[in-house]
Amino acid sequence: MIGKPGSGGRAGHRETGAGAAAAPAPAPGSAAPARVPRIPRTRVPVLLLLPSLVGLAFVVLPLVGLLVRAPWQSVPERLGDPAVRTALRLSIQCSFGALAISLVLGVPLAWLFARVDFPGKALLRALVLLPLVLPPVVGGVALLLAFGRRGVLGPWLESMGVRLTFSMTGAMLAGAFVALPFLVLSVEGAIAGLDRKYEETAATLGAGPLRVFCTVTLPLIAPGLAAGSALAWARALGEFGATITFAGNLPGETQTLPLAVYLMLQDDPDTAVAVSLMLLAVSVVVLVALRGRWLSPTRKQPYVPEPDEAGR
């Protein structure tokens, strides 16, 4: 779903339609609403049903485990633990820092990918999206080799007195590295799905390209931008591998919540579970906030091919 640029921008405008379509299916034979194509009722083969139920259980059971085994009575107290509060504060700083970096770098990048054709674009785009599939630890190693003390830019950074490893900035960079693709994908989709006539009109009225971008494009892609930001923020909040590899692990400096959970599991499992619950709640909130965009199956948002896309 994420990999389909163009769907993000449109989806926002059809949210009402999507909500209506979620109503219970009409009895067979009755006419479905003309705008929403329905999947005809089919017999479900056991070969498909069985694995899908196992799949469902596979995803749901761990969450149930977390909920069942959670030390509910002491959760508030455990979340108030100074170590947890330190990690929480740091996580909030780092995740929003990572989001800020992603926005500053990602929005222009997304615009470039959506609007400008240049040689090697497909390759560059693939490179920017690479952290989506790259093991985060590898990302951390790569960051070390680029920005670490003996990294490619290390001596130059050091001469300017900048130290990224073992610093909060480093933790932010690690988060931004893994979060950036989520933002770029969402925003690129939103920009690509825009009707260009608004921007063209603004341009004919004498607005420069930058002004058009700031006053017309940005407001129009606001829903896509918000969705991308939420995803990127959540991804940065949960980052573990790149953070511990690149930024290290120090309470109050680089030990974010996921690192704290991992270490607490070794000597204070109940607090680890309490913090996990909190992170789970945050994830659920993010998903709910994005409901119309990522939660509803594609068929509820009918895909109308645009003339230039029909040939693909």
Partner: peptide, 19 residues
Amino acid sequence: PKSEEVDVKAVVTRVRMGE
């Protein structure tokens, strides 16, 4: 310390990599 590593090998790695 600038970082509290999760095991002894991680400490070795930090010194070996010059971080």
